[in-house]
Simulated scan of single mutants.
Amino acid sequence: MAQNKQKRGPMQFLQFGVIGFANAAIDIGTLNLLLILFHTDDRGMLLLYNTISYILAVVNSYYWNASITFKRSAKGSNRQRILFIVQGLVSLGVSNLVFLGANELLQLIGTNNWLRYNVAKGLAMFLSFLASFFMVKYFVFRDYGKRYIDEKN
C-alpha cells in the first residue's frame, strides 16, 4: 500500500504540473490581454487584473484536477468545494502579494512595464502553484476515509 502511495505522489505532481501549464496560459494570457486593452500602472487596477486572471485559472484548475489528478479522492462534495475555495483564496493572497511585491521591486530598478508585469506574474504563479498543490493534495482532496482505514490496520 505504501508503494502505491509513493508512486501516486510524483504522478500527481506531474499531472498537476501539466494542468498548471494550461492554467498559466490562462492566467498570464488574461493578465496581458487586460493590460493591452486597459493599460494601467495603478496598483489597485493591477491587483484587480491579477485577481481576475487568477480566478479564471483556478476555475480551470478545479475542473481538471478534480477530473484527473485527484479523481480518486475528489468526491465533488460541498465540503471539498468549500475547501477548494478556501485554498484558492489563500493561493490568491500569495499570488497578489508576490505579484505586487515583485512589481514594486522591479519598478525600483527601472525594469520596463511589460517585462516587469510578466516577471512579477511568473513569480506569483510559481509560488501560488506550489502553495496550491500542497493545499489541494493534503487539505482539499485528502482521502480521509482511506487514511482512517489504513491507520486502523
Rank of each mutant, 00 (worst) to 15 (best):
L34N: 11
L35Y: 02
L35K: 02
I36Y: 11
L37Q: 08
F38I: 00
H39Q: 07
D42K: 13
R43G: 00
G44L: 14
G44E: 05
G44R: 12
M45L: 13
L46G: 03
L47Q: 03
L48Q: 08
L48F: 14
L48D: 11
T51M: 07
T51K: 08
I52N: 07
I52S: 06
S53Q: 04
Y54S: 06
I55A: 14
L56I: 03
A57K: 07
V58T: 12
V59E: 08
V59D: 03
Y62K: 10
N65L: 08
N65S: 06
A66Q: 13
A66G: 09
A66L: 09
I68F: 15
I68R: 15
I68V: 14
K71M: 09
K71Q: 14
R72I: 00
S73M: 09
A74K: 08
G76Y: 05
S77C: 07
R79W: 07
R79I: 13
R79V: 14
Q80W: 02
R81G: 14
I82H: 03
I82F: 10
I85G: 13
V86H: 02
G88T: 03
G88C: 04
S91I: 00
L92V: 07
G93H: 12
V94R: 00
F99P: 07
G101I: 04
N103I: 02
L106R: 09
L108Y: 10
I109D: 08
N112A: 13
L115H: 10
L115C: 05
A120M: 11
A120L: 09
L123I: 03
M125R: 00
F126M: 04
L127R: 01
S128L: 02
S128T: 04
F129N: 01
A131W: 09
S132P: 07
M135E: 05
K137Q: 14
Y138S: 00
F139L: 05
V140Q: 01
F141S: 13
F141T: 08
R142A: 05
D143E: 13
G145T: 12
R147Q: 12
